[in-house]
């Protein structure tokens, strides 16, 4: 067990604050809404979701984006809980990337 959680970066040295924002993408809004529903429906709870993020390897965490990290954590948790199947998920990702469109979802 590390002395400090991967996520525990408060007080660490870091570069300038990024002042330029960008609007949330449509899929990011959808993702937040879907994650809200998972909680409202009792499929997941905040603390177990946070645990999946805390378990991420430090180098992965350092290079991850805000939405990417949340998505990966949630996917991992839902697989762990048996809500989705890992192989079915990866197959579906490939299928969508190969088609290159959003239409068939």
């Amino acid at each position: 067990m590390a002395d400090k959680l991967t996520t525990d970066i408060g007080g660490d040295p870091a570069g300038p604050i990024p002042l330029e924002g960008r609007d949330q993408l449509f899929w990011e809004k959808q993702m937040i809404a879907a994650f809200n529903l998972l909680q409202v429906k009792g499929v997941v709870v905040t603390d177990e979701f946070r645990r999946t993020v805390e378990e991420m390897p430090a180098d992965y965490y350092a290079g991850s984006t805000f939405y990417g990290r949340r998505l990966d954590g949630m996917v991992r948790l839902l697989i762990e809980k048996g809500v989705i199947d890992a192989d079915a998920f990866e197959a579906r990702v490939r299928e969508i990337l190969e088609s290159g469109t959003r239409d068939h979802v």
């Binding site: 959808q30 993702m31 879907a34 499929v43 990417g68 990966d72 989705i84």
Partner: peptide, 19 residues
């Protein structure tokens, strides 16, 4: 790839009757 991963998850959740 990020969006595709979300769309994959979303489609599985809908097919699975979760939402």
């Amino acid at each position: 790839e990020g969006e595709a991963r979300f769309l994959a998850l979303k489609s599985l959740l809908i097919e699975g009757g979760v939402m």
